Computed example of a mutant assay.
Amino acid sequence: MTSRNWVRLFMTTSLTGGLTTAIVGFIVRWKEFQPYFTEFRIMDILSTTIWLIVMGFLFSVISQMGFFAYLTVHRFGLGIFKSVSLWNAVQSVLILFALFDLVYLRYVNFAKSGESIFPYFLPAVVLLLVGLIVSWFKVKQTNPSAFIPALFVMVVVTLVEWVPVLRVNERSWLYLMMFSLMACNAYQLLILHKLNSQSEKDRQKRSHQSGSNKDNPLKGKINKRPSI
Results as ranks from 00 to 15, higher is better:
residue 9 L to W: 08
residue 198 Q to V: 12
residue 78 L to G: 15
residue 106 R to S: 13
residue 33 F to N: 14
residue 87 W to T: 07
residue 164 P to D: 01
residue 67 F to W: 00
residue 41 R to P: 02
residue 131 G to E: 06
residue 40 F to W: 03
residue 172 S to K: 06
residue 216 N to W: 14
residue 59 F to Q: 13
residue 13 T to L: 08
residue 75 R to F: 06
residue 80 I to N: 01
residue 193 H to C: 07
residue 142 T to G: 01
residue 167 R to S: 12
residue 13 T to F: 05
residue 59 F to E: 13
residue 114 G to Y: 10
residue 137 F to S: 01
residue 97 F to I: 15
residue 41 R to N: 10
residue 142 T to W: 00
residue 183 A to Y: 06
residue 138 K to S: 13
residue 148 I to E: 00
residue 95 I to H: 05
residue 222 I to T: 12
residue 89 A to L: 13
residue 78 L to W: 01
residue 174 L to V: 02
residue 117 I to P: 03
residue 74 H to N: 04
residue 1 M to G: 12
residue 158 T to I: 06
residue 62 I to D: 12
residue 93 V to W: 11
residue 138 K to L: 09
residue 166 L to K: 11
residue 149 P to V: 00
residue 108 V to W: 10
residue 180 S to F: 01
residue 36 Y to H: 07
residue 199 S to Q: 01
residue 42 I to T: 12
residue 99 L to H: 08
residue 49 T to S: 12
residue 4 R to M: 13
residue 193 H to I: 03
residue 167 R to Y: 14
residue 37 F to K: 01
residue 122 L to N: 06
residue 147 F to S: 01
residue 185 N to C: 03
residue 163 V to P: 00
residue 181 L to F: 08
residue 76 F to L: 15
residue 134 V to Y: 06
residue 202 D to W: 09
residue 41 R to C: 03
residue 1 M to Q: 08
residue 194 K to Q: 13
residue 124 A to N: 05
residue 88 N to D: 14
residue 100 F to Y: 13
residue 132 L to E: 04
residue 161 E to C: 11
residue 215 D to H: 09
residue 169 N to M: 10
residue 139 V to W: 02
residue 105 L to T: 10
residue 70 Y to P: 03
residue 25 G to H: 04
residue 87 W to H: 12
residue 47 S to G: 03
residue 13 T to S: 15
residue 10 F to C: 15
residue 132 L to P: 03
residue 59 F to V: 15
residue 210 S to H: 09
residue 111 A to V: 01
residue 180 S to R: 01
residue 212 S to A: 11
residue 61 V to L: 14
residue 13 T to I: 06
residue 213 N to T: 05
residue 3 S to R: 15
residue 186 A to T: 05
residue 184 C to V: 07
residue 157 V to L: 02
residue 187 Y to M: 02
residue 56 G to L: 08
residue 77 G to W: 00
residue 64 Q to C: 09
residue 90 V to L: 10
residue 206 R to K: 12
residue 20 T to K: 02
residue 121 F to W: 08
residue 175 Y to F: 10
residue 34 Q to S: 13
residue 18 G to I: 07
residue 201 K to M: 09
residue 115 E to N: 07
residue 125 V to D: 02
residue 29 R to H: 07
residue 7 V to Y: 14
residue 161 E to F: 01
residue 50 I to H: 00
